[in-house]
Computed example of a mutant assay.
Amino acid sequence: MAAVRKAPSILGFPHRPEWGAAAHRKALAGHLRRCRDHAGIGTRQAARCIGASESTISRIENGLAALKEAEVERLLDVYGVRDPQERSRIQALVHEAAQPEAWQPYAGAAPHTLRPLLAMEPAARRIISYEPQLVPGWLQTEEYAEIVIRAAHPTRPAREIAECVRLRMQRIEMLRRTEAPPVLLAVMDSEVFRRQVGTPGVMYRQIKHLLALLEELRYSLRLQIAPLSVGAAGAIGHPIVHLRFFTPEYLPDLLYLEQYEGAVYREKPSESERYQAVLNNLCGVACPAEQTPSLLQAALAAWR
């Protein structure tokens, strides 16, 4: 006698508004796909139930389409989801998925290629970042950020540059959350502190800012510096961000690979694991985080 398959459950994914709309939408999207598979219903039949196309079902199940409560309710009926607790949690997630994304107040300043990262990083349990050229965006001062953004977009109006700076400044607020903030493990190339951005005063204040953040965010920020002696391990020519979430069974790791004219995202476990190994190796050969304050103090002295 064949074993009865256990129905998928969404109860393991909590309702956490601080994680942002995208995380709730993505978790619910995967759950709806699993419910459809469990019910043995094809995408065409599911689409007919809500008067939509198969491509709409595909977009819903990949977290790319807005979730309408009435449509979700009809799909749950068709998929045989009857448990009141399950349906109540799903209703809460649908509501949360409809809230504004973290970047939406700055929509004019948020590049389309960066929006998925901005939307998902508040839900991360751990963020690993490698930056070979600049101080990571989360950790920049306003003046440092303005100079960097203006250099990349020299023709943009001043008001748009200012909006980009405000967006960048708000990203670190997730590390200041009192309830389960993400932990940021940031690795920077040592040459970042030798590459002058703006005046020596800008560099001096930026390094002071890093020292202050290490003191303020001692439980949610870990900063390592990779010297030139790390050799090939540090010869990565572009920034990398790797997100790992509190609920990996609902939210797979997300990999962000920055490029000059855009970005590439990866979620396949094989690619995520490969870059995780690269980043782990880099963290292993970089100077230990315990040495970072003294290294920053030395860098500070060079800009006095």
Rank of each mutant, 00 (worst) to 15 (best):
E69S: 11
Q133P: 01
P239C: 04
M169T: 02
A97N: 08
E54L: 02
K68N: 14
E267K: 12
R218P: 03
L118T: 03
E69Y: 00
Q133N: 11
R25V: 04
G108Q: 12
R171F: 01
I172Q: 06
L243F: 03
E142I: 04
P269T: 05
L279W: 07
C49L: 10
E73Y: 02
E69L: 09
R74H: 07
A263Q: 11
E71K: 15
R126T: 10
V78T: 14
M1L: 11
W19K: 00
A29N: 09
M203P: 14
R304H: 13
A66F: 05
A212N: 12
G51F: 05
M188T: 11
E73K: 11
I128L: 11
R25C: 04
A22N: 04
L243E: 03
A123H: 01
Q224F: 09
V241P: 03
I236V: 15
E273W: 10
R48Y: 07
M120N: 11
A65P: 06
W19Q: 00
L221S: 06
E96M: 00
G12A: 08
A235S: 12
L221I: 08
A21Q: 02
I60M: 15
I147S: 07
R33C: 13
A235I: 02
P252W: 03
F13V: 01
L257T: 08
L75C: 10
E261A: 14
Q291P: 01
Q170N: 00
L213V: 04
S58L: 02
L67N: 09
E146L: 05
A158P: 05
I41M: 06
R115S: 06
L282N: 07
L228K: 13
R48G: 12
Y106H: 12
A46D: 10
T141F: 01
E249Y: 04
H112G: 10
P252L: 06
R34H: 12
F246H: 14
A162C: 08
P157N: 01
T178H: 04
S270R: 12
S53P: 08
R194H: 15
G234H: 09
P17R: 00
L211V: 09
V165W: 00
L257M: 12
N62F: 00
P14E: 11
W303V: 14
E179M: 00
Q224S: 13
E101W: 01
H209A: 07
F246D: 05
